[in-house]
Design a protein around this nucleic acid. Structure first.
Lengths: 362, 362
DNA sequence: ATGCTAAAGGAAACCGGTGTCATTTGCAAC
DNA sequence: GTTGCAAATGACACCGGTTTCCTTTAGCAT
């Protein structure tokens, strides 16, 4: 029984955390305005059931005192927090940040905060982790990034626990209210047509990981464009990648080891495209003279390497903004209802990594 | 008085948001364990004032029911939230993300969440915005990233409103408890000695923006190393940058337009170093044959360009982890008190962007 | 004036925890 | 067997809002 001599034996006394600079409570406002706290509450929550003159009087007091309701108290009473969650299991750091940026833009000037939460893809308890997180934090709403967003169980989960959600994706995943997507397949087709119009016939693909919807969409676009142009696609021209820089290098090595090299490579994201470029340089190949490259996403790296990469711009910041606005639509912060777009168009950005193939390799 | 015909005239009724799958409350646990709710609260908060057998009984009930205390209620009662804030006004996306990663690693398996908050540098109301944010969200603690972390007013503010804080920096900013820093000056000196040992004598600097402590530290290290080696530094070899890729290009242009070019350039961060490389390529200069480059930070871009950049690795993920652990030290989540390091060492990473200068330009 | 109805506003309970303080219990000393 | 004192526990108010439900007031017709 020696386990008892712990810390000081008093319960951490003092409720002193109450802010020193005497923040007003709803009671103070009520007293100053000469109304009940419920009336103040009605003003705060834009209740239609009150007299204009009363509202104005209370609002005047609020303005003068600089009163701001305590979010913790509201969260407790309302059963949900004023926080938007961002859940991701994505390997691409830049994408996460751009998404954050978009969401934060939408949340700017509102009282919502952004909580980020990475999860372990493949972890057996992932779904439980997410449930636990959502239930505990009582988030107002949550944004799911791909690839985890492709998991339909999340939608079920959110509906079950009554949490607003938006899933980001590369194709239609859910109803418009719960989704923000781009059409990756069409964007890739456009990029491939460009490559083909430049004269390329042997085009390699650095594919994305299996199980990623976006990877499938992009690969389908790739294959469709070749088929459309009547170009045969040998299996060997498709190399698997993991959406990482290193996997781009590895995949490119296998492509460039072929007896007849591709004259162009389409990589399913910019990270891998940077890997393609790196691998080409390691072999002393010129880009775009010896090898043309197209990437996808238009992350900063695409414009920072030499030559800057021709790529498909994924309007991710705008998508993030739209996702956040969907979540808070209907609140006083954003009274306009659901006219946020659910579908975004990716566009080809032409930079310096594409040129017609050399005649010699025809 | 036509302003009255608003939405439905009933107050949004139904308190139905109470989770459907009947989460237990502290009262349920108290009843099941045959104790008062206060005793359950003591168990949750690791109070030393209770009997082992009671504690075990209550813990058993908690385990069986899977009870988790409501964070909103705790936040209200305790006057602070279980959230760590990350406040930044930094232009470098990668740095922010790495910091997030470090913090999230530390917070993993705890009940703390991470709230991110960008602020407008230069905005006149910035300090008020931050105060408002901290007061409203009642954050448990907050991490400030440079350059805003260099503002001493933030420390005053946090102490005033009773919010734990940690400032990240490039030099000693505060007492150990409130700071995590690297020694940028020494790291730059090491990098410069390497450059000089390779035979470089005309070395250009792409400096960071005025007002950034890190920029000053790095510039001082640069100047010290040259002085130490007895190398005179003409004013023209220092070009101002803004820590952005584009500013790196501009600064390099001015450096390379000099009648006698530098044989090497030190850039105060990797973004700008990538700009240096880009600008060199635009002129057809070979790197490292015609121009050696050293950057700072070791962000992913440094290893993705060609040639990969020699740079100084700033251990930012580890620093973020340390910062977060400092904040939650003393809580049950991290009972070990304050032995988190406050000072980190940056190391030179040698890659492919440095070579001895050509004899011709000697 | 009187009665009726709907709008406006207030009192008290409640959300789910924690702090304060009083009470009970356990055990050693007298 | 008391007394004394500290350890263990509980009752109750409280954190700062929201909701329920009821009372008061205003507007209008009779």
């Amino acid at each position: 029984m020696t386990t008892r001599q712990k810390k000081p034996p008093i319960e951490k006394n003092s409720r002193a955390n109450t802010t020193p600079n005497s923040k007003q409570t709803i009671n103070d406002i009520a007293r100053l305005a000469g109304v009940s706290k419920k009336t103040v509450s009605r003003v705060i929550n834009r209740s239609p059931l009150l007299n204009e003159s009363t509202r104005e009087r209370v609002e005047e007091v609020i303005r003068q005192t600089g009163y701001v309701p305590n979010p913790q108290a509201r969260a407790l009473a309302l059963g949900r927090n004023f926080l938007i969650g961002l859940i991701h299991d994505n390997p691409n750091a830049q994408m996460i940040l751009n998404m954050q940026q978009g969401i934060l833009e939408a949340l700017h000037d509102t009282d919502f905060g952004l909580v980020v939460r990475p999860v372990d893809r493949g972890s057996a308890t992932m779904l439980d982790d997410i449930r636990h997180f959502l239930e505990r934090q009582r988030l107002y709403g949550v944004v799911f990034l791909p690839p985890i967003s492709e998991n339909n169980a999340l939608a079920t989960l959110c509906k079950e626990i009554g949490c607003r959600y938006v899933r980001m994706g590369s194709a239609t995943l859910d109803d418009a209210q719960h989704m923000v997507a781009s059409n990756d397949r069409d964007a890739v087709i456009e990029a491939m047509r460009y490559l083909i119009s430049q004269g390329h016939r042997r085009i390699g693909l650095v594919a994305g990981p299996h199980g990623f919807r976006s990877a499938r969409e992009r690969r389908e676009g790739f294959e469709f464009a070749l088929q459309e142009a009547g170009i045969k696609l040998p299996r060997s021209l498709i190399a698997d990648g993991q959406y990482t820089f290193e996997s781009g290098i590895t995949a490119t090595d296998s492509l460039l080891d072929l007896s007849v090299r591709p004259t162009a490579i389409f990589a399913c994201n910019d990270e891998m495209a940077a890997g393609v470029l790196f691998a080409a340089r390691e072999r002393g190949l010129g880009v775009p003279e010896d090898l043309s490259i197209i990437g996808f996403d238009d992350t900063p790296i695409a414009s920072r390497v030499w030559p800057p990469l021709t790529t498909v711009r994924w309007p991710i910041v705008a998508m993030g903004r739209s996702a956040a606005l969907k979540l808070i639509s209907g609140t006083f912060a954003n009274p306009d209802e659901e006219d946020e777009p659910s579908s975004f168009i990716s566009t080809l950005i032409r930079r310096g990594s594409v040129a017609p193939p050399k005649k010699t390799s025809a």
